[in-house]
């Protein structure tokens, strides 16, 4: 009887999540009347705005990941090594993007960095791109920081640092050759999450008026029937692809660091 309810709950859950996806995928394949086809996908992929916005978002995601790694890895490392008392405060700061809506952050940016401010980042395209990247980094901070911090917890950074120092290594060498390679899997986890967040983000890109993938999906959804469904399926596949990669690299790490 117990098993019956357990299976019942599982099947209900699966249907609750899978049915809409099946429905959406089914709908995305019905652009041509009466037959299943990939027409909606072909239209989306052939749309120059799709290519432009998707490429833009990928580039932004990669820049955000690079900036996030450069910001978070040394910070989390230094806090663990030299300032452990600051950890609760840093954790609190990194959690703030979860409770402060993106719209508040972006309005703050626009007020602070508008064309009449001391640092008019919104005055140029490059400046606005940089501002958007900072915004994305802020949104991804809780995930990136937690991933890296968890990775750092699994190694004895104090002793490894001292060992490297006694062998003549400076801080840059220690970070690049010892710390980063040993938390690479954690960094990759954070990077994939960042990628997934950036690809789908709408608010910041729309309010800073940048040609990102999020606003494009919204625009398409408001004006077309089958293409948004195809886009949603593609976006969903991309996000799950990222999550699959996290699983893959985590498994790789477990294999690589099994005890003797």
């Amino acid at each position: 009887m117990k098993k019956f309810w357990a299976w019942g709950a599982l099947i209900f859950g699966l249907l609750y999540f899978i049915l809409p996806l099946v429905g959406m995928t089914n709908f995305s394949l019905k652009m041509r009347r009466g037959v299943y086809s990939l027409d909606a996908y072909a239209v989306v992929l052939g749309d120059p705005r799709f290519q432009e916005t998707f490429t833009y978002s990928i580039l932004m995601a990669l820049s955000t990941i690079v900036f996030g790694v450069l910001l978070v890895v040394p910070t989390a490392y230094w806090v663990r090594l030299k300032l452990p008392g600051l950890r609760p405060y840093i954790e609190f700061i990194t959690l703030l993007p979860l409770v402060i809506p993106a719209i508040v952050i972006v309005f703050g940016y626009i007020r602070l960095y508008n064309t009449s401010s001391w640092l008019p980042l919104t005055g140029t395209t490059t400046g606005t791109n940089i501002l958007l990247m900072f915004g994305y980094s802020t949104l991804a901070l809780p995930y990136m920081y937690r991933s890296v911090d968890t990775g750092l917890r699994s190694i004895d950074i104090a002793t490894l640092t001292e060992a490297a120092q006694s062998l003549g290594a400076g801080w840059t060498t220690i970070l690049a050759k010892i710390i980063l390679p040993n938390v690479l899997v954690a960094v990759l986890s954070g990077a994939f999450l960042t990628f997934a967040i950036v690809i789908g983000e709408f608010t910041m890109a729309a309010l800073l008026n940048r040609p990102a993938f999020g606003p494009y999906m919204q625009l398409l959804g408001a004006n077309r029937a089958y293409e948004p469904a195809a886009l949603a399926v593609m976006s969903f596949a991309l996000t799950w692809g990222c999550l699959g990669l996290i699983q893959l690299v985590s498994r790789f790490q477990k294999g690589a660091q099994s005890p003797a």
């Binding site: 004895d156 490894l160 060992a163 050759k177 010892i178 390679p181 690479l184």
Partner: peptide, 8 residues
């Protein structure tokens, strides 16, 4: 004491 070999 803890060897401190670089795991990577």
């Amino acid at each position: 004491q803890a060897y401190a070999l670089f795991p990577n």
